[in-house]
Structures are given as C-alpha cells and as structure tokens.
Computed example of a mutant assay.
Amino acid sequence: MSIKGYHREKFAAAVSNLVGLGDIRVRVEHAFVSLVTVNPKQMVGETAEKYQSLYAKVTSRQEEFQGEGTIRSTLRHMTDEDVSDVAEEILEIHNQLLREFSAA
C-alpha cells in the first residue's frame, strides 16, 4: 500500500469514529486515536499543512491530570462549536485525500 493509500485509510477510520451517538468530544478524540500513526511530514502540499495545523490545534494544551493526554485536555477546554469545527476539518482532509486519489 502506498503512503497516500495509508493516509486515506487512516482518515476513513477517523471519519467513521465521528459518526454515531455520544459526546462529540469523545468521538473526535477517538478519531485522533485513528490518526496517531499519520506523520504529516509524509503528506504533501495543502493536505499536510491542514493536518499539521489541525493537530497543533487539538494538542495545544498540556494534560492537567495524569494520563489525560493533550488531546483530551485540549478538547475538554474547547466549546462545542470548536470541537464540531475540528470534526469538519477531519472530514475535509479526508475528502481532499479522496479527490487527490481520484485525480491521480
């Protein structure tokens, strides 16, 4: 599998985690667990920039409790609207990866 195929697979898994019942913060956190092995340095162009920016946004706070992690800590401090925007950005990156695949 190519690295682009790997990224598409990981973002598809992340999008799957966004769908369904439950708290949006938990769903977004699970989406990022699916993306933990995605190295933005292996991505190219605008997609890489978007993912690097998104990852920085979602890991911007230090953990406040032992074992909490930066993602959970950051999401806990975001508004519902901000967390929803993160979910939309994951979907946008996923869709962009699909468009790039179709164009190739």
Rank of each mutant, 00 (worst) to 15 (best):
M1A: 07
S2G: 12
I3D: 15
K4F: 10
K4C: 08
G5W: 12
G5H: 15
Y6K: 15
H7F: 05
H7E: 07
H7T: 07
R8G: 10
R8A: 11
R8S: 13
R8N: 14
E9F: 05
K10P: 00
K10S: 08
F11L: 01
F11I: 09
F11W: 09
A12N: 15
A13N: 14
A13Y: 08
A13I: 13
V15G: 00
N17Y: 11
N17G: 08
L18K: 10
L18T: 05
G20K: 10
G20F: 12
L21A: 14
L21T: 10
L21V: 08
L21Q: 10
L21Y: 09
G22Y: 12
G22V: 12
G22L: 10
D23T: 05
I24H: 10
R25T: 02
V26D: 03
V26E: 02
V26H: 01
V28E: 01
E29V: 02
H30K: 15
A31V: 07
F32W: 05
V33Y: 09
V33F: 01
V33M: 04
S34I: 00
S34Q: 09
L35V: 00
V36I: 11
T37R: 10
T37A: 00
P40C: 07
K41P: 00
M43L: 15
E46A: 02
T47F: 04
T47P: 00
T47L: 07
A48E: 07
E49Y: 03
K50H: 06
K50F: 01
Y51T: 12
S53Q: 06
L54W: 10
L54H: 10
L54G: 07
A56Y: 03
A56I: 02
V58Q: 10
S60H: 05
Q62N: 13
E63T: 06
E63V: 06
F65H: 07
Q66V: 11
Q66R: 13
E68R: 08
G69D: 04
G69R: 03
T70D: 09
R72G: 01
R72A: 12
S73H: 05
S73A: 15
L75M: 08
L75V: 08
L75S: 09
M78Y: 11
D80S: 13
D80P: 07
D82R: 08
D82V: 05
S84P: 05
S84W: 03
D85V: 14
D85M: 05
E88C: 02
E89W: 06
E89K: 14
I90T: 02
L91N: 13
I93G: 00
I93V: 07
H94A: 03
H94M: 04
H94C: 08
H94I: 08
N95G: 04
N95A: 03
N95K: 08
N95Y: 06
L97I: 15
L97K: 06
L97Q: 11
L97R: 11
L98W: 04
L98E: 12
E100I: 13
E100F: 07
A103P: 00
A103L: 14
A103K: 11
A103F: 13
A104H: 12
